[in-house]
Design a protein around this nucleic acid. Sequence first.
RNA 1: GGCCCCUUCGUCUAUCGGUUAGGACGCCAGAUUCUCAAUCUGGAAAGACGGGUUCGACUCCCGUAGGGGCUGCCA
Length: 475
Amino acid sequence: MTATPPVVPPVVTRFAPSPTGFLHIGGARTALFSWLYARHTGGVMLLRIEDTDRARSTPEATEAIFEGLRWLGLDWDGEAISQFARAPRHAEVAHEMIARGTAYRCWSSVEEIEAFRETARAEGRPPLFRSPWRDADPATAPDAPYVVRLRAPREGETVVEDVVQGTVTWKNETLDDLILLRSDGTPTYMLAVVVDDHDMGVTHVIRGDDHLTNAARQTLIYRAMGWDVPVFAHIPLIHGPDGAKLSKRHGALGVEAYRDMGYLPEAMRNYLARLGWSHGNDEFFTTEQAISWFDLTHLGKAPARFDFAKLENLSGQHIRAADDAHLLAELEAFLAAQKRPPLTEVQRSQILRAMPGLKERARTLLQIIDMASFILVSPPFAMDEAATKALASVPPETLEKLTSRLRNVTWAASDLETIVRDFAAAEGLGLGKIAQPLRVALSGRTVSLGVFDMMEILGREQSLARLDACIKAGS
RNA sequence: GGCCCCUUCGUCUAUCGGUUAGGACGCCAGAUUCUCAAUCUGGAAAGACGGGUUCGACUCCCGUAGGGGCUGCCA
């Protein structure tokens, strides 16, 4: 007899940002974890825009979230869902709860509630509002707008089984009768989240630690409706370098800011995945590896600090590992996004040939561009003091002598190197003494790719022209 | 204030009662070298503190301290 395999429902995760700004780095990581888990399990990740706060939600912010996710390469399944559009459904559930007796109408004014809290605080009691309408005679109900409150249990405890935080318990007396429906009939976040997650069939709620307390309140709503509670995974927040909450000063920038700094999306995914999750000692990995390795059991419990140095190192590793054509494509997309002029055909092919040298020196696309300035910027170069000095370290006659020897040789890096080395030896100079002025003549800088590689990439004509120009300027 | 969570090198982390506490970034020194990178070798660097439990605690329990979150008719 063969055992029937247990029926495991497919995993459904969701990312549910509120469109009140850009997609910040913490949200991006939450999205990444939800995405990795869905892809790892062969499940789906849904996207829901929590736009019930009409005053703060904007279409621009929604678009920024889409854009950020797209750049990061995090695709979601199906159409993004607007929470606001589901308000009628939320209200319907609230009224069903009233009918079930798990919620009630409350006519207390905000002033009354405020006064209640103040005296409670003054008397040292917990400032949990206790509505007089919870057990009021329905006959006394005024004909006026009301809010709908959850009839939360006052005894016993509520337990959240969190895969990251473990078993977390609250005494029910510390939880209040939260508002489900505002006096204008619109749903609150607490209700909307539960109804949507339930209706969307979400099995795993992966979100920031800041929602842990909300998980208890939401559990109450699930129970009141007799719904299954999803698996919760509350991941620790990302902090700034000083340990405090991430501010704009640190890394709380929109993901597009990282794109603008020239980080590769694959590097961003790698870095973010490593912040709070681990797979043994693996630091550098591809997205495919992350998908196959990702699980919820190796998530850390402590908040992590954002570290640009490590991100940059990882970015450098991804650039070095990327193939040249891919990098060129990323570079051109970057240039376009930065509204910089596109590459000419010549520049494209030169950069492609320079790529092996460029990518081992750069940690961001911005650095590739900078290192490729000998291709992108045409002479005469604006030289700094060190460059001018290096160029003048050798008399123009020496440079002229060398240049004339280069006029009719095979134009390949290795041959050029032999010739220059021989020349330096004949002049009684170290190669460095000759290479440095050469470098400046070719690139206008004291830091660049290898001089022979640059000569080969630039070609005979351009290389000699640059040398001639320097000789002319120097004599 | 109340409730809840967290705490291993500067940073990200491994460890799931027995390790010289490992790796990575960064840092320092050296090698290589036409500059810069890259690469290689070596080095400094950690269990917040105090109590327990145990033959034995980074690991389990309690307390303290520090950090964080929630405490809205925001999400």
